[in-house]
């Protein structure tokens, strides 16, 4: 055997560092069992899968589940909700931490920055169950937000979660509330590394405060914004399952039903594993397409992810 061949060297490496390799073995087994074995389950999308029978005993149905989904009356509603919730989220939720980081960056009193940071980081630590519990509490008939809304619109207070029209705003605003502070960390850290000489140069050129923001600050953090944006685009068809599931009610289903909740209801609760997996696979493929397309355009500006 060639002494320098890859496997010969590998053999020596394993022999020399056998304790390290041995330690890693359980980790490897963990990833194979819990992350790679389930990948195989994707094939359920093409079977009328019955868990007791396995793949061998289940009937192969080709693309039946996919066409069933595309033809179903739920398809339009679910796709609309999933896509629109993401579009609104990109418009309103995505820029929030960037704007907040810029706000903090413009404040020169460090004590104020610290205080604002601590207060806004807090909600991310609260569990989704409690967050949604508080939302339910604030939006119920005699809740705080319901009554504020009633004062604004002049109508009688009602349970806002029972009205499908309020579902998107509730979902998005609570999202901003919970994540704005924590998500701003990355942007704020990037801002803190902006070269201060650039500002001095801009000042000499006569740039005012606003002009410095447009010409120095924002271009400096554009790369990190692009990376975050690409990652965000890659989950275009994901709506956080847990929150959607917690806030979903029959009365707001018109707006709250999304792909993930549909997969759970049909697949796990309805015991139709093939159908559920097919819908999940469909959304994973679209997600990847979005990620790829965004990255394609980002690469043209030299900010691509790969």
């Amino acid at each position: 055997m060639n002494k320098n061949s890859y496997f010969a060297r590998l053999k020596i490496d394993i022999k020399r560092k056998k304790v390290e390799y041995l330690l890693f073995l359980p980790v490897l087994i963990y990833f194979i069992i819990f992350c790679y074995v389930p990948l195989y389950g994707i094939f359920m999308a093409f079977f009328d899968y019955v868990p007791a029978l396995g793949f061998a005993g289940s009937e192969y149905v080709g693309f039946q589940w996919f066409s069933l989904f595309f033809d179903s009356i739920f398809f339009g509603r679910i796709m609309y909700n999933t896509i629109m919730l993401n579009v609104y989220s990109i418009i309103f939720v995505f820029p929030a931490p960037i704007l907040f980081a810029l706000l903090l960056y413009e404040i020169k009193t460090k004590a104020v920055v610290k205080t604002a940071q601590i207060l806004t980081y807090l909600p991310v630590f609260i569990s989704l169950v409690v967050v949604c519990g508080i939302i339910v509490d604030f939006c119920k008939v005699d809740g705080l937000i319901s009554n504020i809304m009633a004062t604004i619109t002049g109508e009688a207070a009602k349970d806002l979660l029972d009205d499908a029209n309020y579902y998107f705003p509730i979902y998005l605003i609570s999202d901003i509330w919970q994540n704005m502070g924590f998500s701003s960390i990355v942007f704020y850290a990037a801002l803190c590394r902006v070269d201060q000489d650039l500002y001095d140069a801009a000042k000499i050129d006569g740039a005012g405060r606003f002009r410095q923001l447009i010409s120095v600050t924002i271009p400096s953090i554009l790369p990190i914004i692009t990376v975050m944006f690409i990652i965000r685009m890659g989950s275009m068809l994901n709506v956080g399952f847990e929150k959607a599931y917690l806030l979903k009610r029959p009365l707001n289903a018109e707006r709250s039903e999304v792909i993930a909740t549909f997969v759970y209801d049909r697949g796990l609760k309805g015991n139709n594993y093939g159908y559920g997996t097919a819908v999940g696979l469909f959304s994973a493929v679209i997600n990847f397409a979005f990620l790829w397309v965004t990255n394609f355009f980002a690469k043209k500006t030299e900010n691509g992810l790969w």
Binding site: R9, L10, D13, I14, K17, E20, Y21, F24, L28, F31, I33, F34, C35, Y36, V37, P38, L39, Y40, G41, I42, M44, P51, G234, F241, A260, V263, Y264, G267, L268, Y273, G276, T277, G280, L281, A284
Partner: peptide, 27 residues
């Protein structure tokens, strides 16, 4: 370790791709 590159790629892969909720439940 010589195999660390592969191990690392293997783990990062799981951050982006998964079988989804139902295969995980069945597992």
């Amino acid at each position: 370790l010589m195999l660390n590159g592969i191990f690392m790629k293997m783990i990062v892969f799981t951050m982006f791709f998964s079988g989804g909720m139902l295969p995980f439940y069945l597992l």
